[in-house]
Design a protein around this nucleic acid. Structure first.
Lengths: 145, 145
DNA sequence: TACTTTTTGGGTGATTGTGGGGAAAAGTGG
DNA sequence: CCACTTTTCCCCACAATCACCCAAAAAGTA
């Protein structure tokens, strides 16, 4: 389970180091491979390979002659991009994803359960302040047991 | 599983390079052979041989005395065209398919699960904006588990 | 403080995408 | 059947990008 927040930087080539603390939680069968794609918020989602495969097996069963299925597959897959760690434990982020998330130099890396998220730090600040409900109110709704 | 989007160009002879990242996901038994045909949208579908064979076996089971089955088979097959990669990893696209998809110079190559799609970039833009439903709504319908 | 681990920066050779020339093959008309 | 044109295929070459390696700076640890 990924957790924690880390302020890192993107270098001139668009590379980002994966924090050592997060790396420790990646299962070995992922083979240092990560799939990144556009998040539902203005951020980049990064899945280790084993987590991505769960999603991929569902997509594989769809019927691409069904218009809804095809549209879903196109949108989900069009911005998906995979890469493996280099010898310095970095991955390359495509320019279009960096542009989507508004990331230029500084990047906020969040560990969120089964995936990681890459944010422009000031966008995340705005996101945190954007809800009218308090953490307590949301927590009460979400955790019911 | 094919994924990602790539902006490439068609040269004067009607050839298109298959992106290296997509090539990596083509199974060896396809022998560098691809079958392209008219897509259900205004684009060109490109199947590696092994995936085409899956589709072909489905077509084989159709009843050609059923008018719908016959029409589907005719349209899909009349524009089907196969080619193998040349030494520069390119395939030749027939002029009638390029015309159908409105592709002249720039081409958007989409990895969509078991196949690839070739789009006129501006047509794809229109397609994305043509749905009244949001991605979340479609996703909820498609992924039910 | 000395040492290890982690993060960041950059250089270089290999791969990839694009364009085009020329030989072989196929089609066309006499 | 033969010249001629057109198309198809194979090869070479260039430019841009990417993958890989080396190394320094920074941070954490004993």
């Amino acid at each position: 389970m990924f957790k924690g927040q880390y302020i890192y930087s993107v270098d001139a080539k668009g590379r980002i180091s994966i924090p050592a603390k997060l790396r420790k939680h990646v299962s070995p069968e992922s083979n240092d491979t990560f799939i990144m794609t556009q998040g539902t918020e203005k951020c980049i989602d990064v899945y280790p390979l084993d987590q991505w495969n769960v999603l991929e097996s569902k997509i594989h069963q769809l019927n691409l002659f069904n218009p809804d299925h095809a549209r879903f597959s196109r949108i989900l897959l069009q911005n998906a991009f995979d890469d493996t760690l280099d010898s310095q434990s970095r991955i390359l982020i495509p320019q279009n994803l960096l542009a989507y998330a508004g990331i230029t130099k500084d990047v906020l890396i969040l560990g969120v359960s089964t995936k990681m998220e890459l944010w422009n730090p000031s966008f995340y600040e705005i996101y945190l302040n954007s809800s009218e409900e308090s953490f307590e109110q949301i927590a009460a709704k979400v955790i019911t047991t």
